Every structure is written in structure tokens, then in C-alpha cells.
Computed example of a mutant assay.
Amino acid sequence: MGLIQFLALQALDTHGGRLPMTRLTEAVGISKSRLCHIVDGMATLGWVRREPDFDDGRGIQAVLTNLGAGVLVPAVPVYAETMATLAQTPLTGQQRAELRALVDQLAQRAAAPPADRSDAEPARRIA
């Protein structure tokens, strides 16, 4: 199971087993098209299914299946251990400076009114 799949399953589990695709996109933090691809793959595996969003009428909800919940449970400690290990991995001075700059940029962007966010510089990947 990949990180994005884990995050999507966890978000569904946290929100009662179902979320509109737009809210799941926000919870996972990826683009709508990428999430649709991920959900398609998880649906093929039987981890989720798509259902009409009766509140919206036009939208689709992702719904966590029993199989998906069963896959998520053993993944939680693995994910937690991986994150703990990554948090303990020392960064170089340059990596810390880049991370600090990116966090500052994200904080400024989050504090800006929504209209000011569209022209923000795209995020850089840390190598």
C-alpha cells in the first residue's frame, strides 16, 4: 500500500467511512485527477467503492469497504513506525534551510486571503 492510498483510507475511516471526492481530495492533499486514479485502483482492489452523493446530487462519494478497513488496520503501525523513523533521520544544514523556507512559504500562503493564493509560486521539491 502506498502512502497516498493509506492517507485516503485513513481519511475515509476518520470521517465515518465515506467522503465526497472533493473533500477526500482536500484531506489527502492531491489533485482531483490524481485522487480519481488512486480511488479507481483501490476500487479495483475492493478497498473502496463509489456511490452517488445524495446531498450533492452531482457528486460522487468514496466509501470505505470492510476489506479496505481490514487492510488499513495492520498498516497503521507500519505507517507510524515509518514516520517516526523519518522524523529521527538527521537533515543536512541545507535541507533544514530548504525545509524552513518551504514551511515559511506555506504558512504565509495559508494566512493569505484565498484570492491571493492563485498566483503563488509553485512549491519546489526537496531532493
Rank of each mutant, 00 (worst) to 15 (best):
L3G: 05
L3V: 06
I4T: 09
Q5M: 05
F6E: 04
L7K: 01
A8M: 09
L9A: 13
L9R: 12
L12R: 08
D13K: 07
D13L: 01
T14R: 06
H15Q: 11
H15G: 07
G17H: 04
G17W: 02
G17D: 02
R18N: 02
P20C: 00
R23I: 00
L24E: 01
T25G: 07
E26S: 03
V28I: 13
G29S: 06
S31G: 07
K32C: 01
S33P: 07
R34S: 13
L35Y: 04
C36A: 06
C36M: 03
I38E: 11
V39C: 06
L45C: 12
V48F: 00
R50M: 00
E51C: 05
P52V: 15
D53Q: 13
D53H: 14
F54V: 03
F54Q: 02
D55Y: 01
D56A: 02
G59L: 06
Q61T: 03
A62W: 08
A62E: 10
T65S: 02
L67W: 12
L67N: 14
G68V: 09
G68R: 10
V73C: 06
V73E: 03
A75G: 08
V76P: 03
V76R: 14
V78C: 10
Y79F: 09
A80K: 00
A80G: 00
E81F: 06
E81C: 09
T82H: 05
M83R: 15
M83G: 10
A84H: 05
A84W: 00
L86I: 07
A87N: 13
Q88T: 14
T92M: 04
T92K: 07
T92P: 01
G93C: 01
G93I: 05
G93T: 07
Q94I: 09
Q95T: 11
R96F: 09
R96A: 10
A97V: 12
A97F: 10
E98V: 10
L99T: 13
L99R: 11
R100C: 09
A101W: 06
A101M: 05
A101V: 04
L102K: 13
L102N: 11
D104W: 01
D104K: 08
Q105S: 05
L106P: 12
L106E: 14
R109P: 04
R109Y: 04
R109G: 06
A110W: 11
A110F: 05
A110V: 11
A112R: 14
P113G: 04
S118A: 15
R124M: 15
R125N: 15
I126C: 03
I126N: 01
I126W: 06
A127I: 06
A127W: 10
